[in-house]
Design a protein around this nucleic acid. Structure first.
Length: 278
DNA sequence: AGCTCAACCTGGCTGC
DNA sequence: TGCAGCCAGGTTGAGC
């Protein structure tokens, strides 16, 4: 579920409760995630303080005294801060204990990840998983014309469809399957167009669309932040009203043409055949 | 290097 | 009601 906005909202939600707090215990309830959760965590982490919580792409980076904890939510992961006495739920996979609070990773499908990057291995940016990621959509390097340049240059000679190009995150990170369809609609670009054939104006519109769509989603999710502690709700599962995603056959909100669904790279894409041009 | 696709895993929904 | 089949917000790694 979580694309960049959901991960960012999670970061904003948990940070005030955890920053400066000392880990008292770690329990691995089921460590068989995408990669095994390091069994050494319950030994390593207690006594260490959470100095800060950062985000890179869809990874949350918890900065501790001797290294960084990398957490990825996969398709179905959520992270919640709860009172420690709160009962564990069926698909809780890892729980980090603090004084009176728990940080729990709940992940039914187990596509998430919890990894440890010790300081001895250098800066966390050196981590192999982070190193290959594209640029951050809200960084200065993706602002304005620089974002246009990134999309334009990195897409040259690429025959893959722009939908798959954008989703792959090699150019800009954080655009998952939902916001990919939404961004292409916003930019008025047909998802099947070869990335390498994008015109410069299209790249400009796409870069702007990505920034806008992700920002709107973060803003919408931010309204649920107050529920991050002590709530029965599921703040990780908010979703903005979509214009095309999951709206197959329904009228386009702009021109009334029925929305089309196609499969690209094993994933659903939704678009308006009238509003989006090659 | 780039492209395509299977695979990881569980639950929810659809349709018979 | 039960059950088979399909679908799901991510990402890697193999094979070409």
């Amino acid at each position: 579920m979580p694309e960049l906005p959901e991960v960012e909202v999670t970061r904003l939600g948990i940070t005030p409760h955890l920053e400066g707090k000392k880990v008292s215990a770690v329990k691995i309830l089921d460590g068989r995630l995408r990669w095994p959760v390091p069994s050494s965590l319950p030994k390593i982490l207690p006594g260490q303080k959470i100095r800060a919580i950062h985000r890179r792409g869809k990874y949350l980076l918890l900065e501790l005294d001797t290294g960084h904890l990398l957490i990825h939510l996969g398709m179905t992961g959520t992270l919640r801060v709860l009172p420690s006495q709160e009962a564990l739920k069926t698909h809780d996979r890892v729980t980090f204990e603090f004084n009176k609070l728990s940080l729990r990773l709940h992940d039914p499908r187990k596509f998430g990840a919890v990894l440890w990057h010790p300081k001895t291995k250098g800066p966390v940016e050196n981590n192999l998983l982070l190193q290959k990621l594209g640029i951050e959509p809200f960084s200065p390097e993706f602002a304005g014309e620089l974002g246009t340049d990134i999309l334009y240059r990195s897409s040259r000679k690429r025959s893959v469809a722009v939908k798959q190009f954008l989703l792959a995150g090699q150019a800009v990170v954080g655009v998952g399957n939902i916001y990919c369809s939404e961004s292409l609609f916003e930019a008025g670009i047909h998802p099947g167009k070869a990335a390498g054939k994008l015109t410069r104006p299209q790249c400009e519109r796409l870069a702007a669309a990505v920034r806008l769509i992700l920002k709107k989603a973060i803003d919408a999710g931010g309204s649920s932040l107050k529920d991050f502690v002590n709530s029965d709700g599921d703040p990780g599962h908010f979703m903005v009203q979509t214009k095309v995603y999951d709206r197959k056959g329904l009228p386009c909100k702009v021109c009334k043409t029925p929305i089309t669904q196609i499969i690209q790279g094993q994933r659903s894409t939704y678009f308006c055949s009238q509003c989006q041009k090659r």
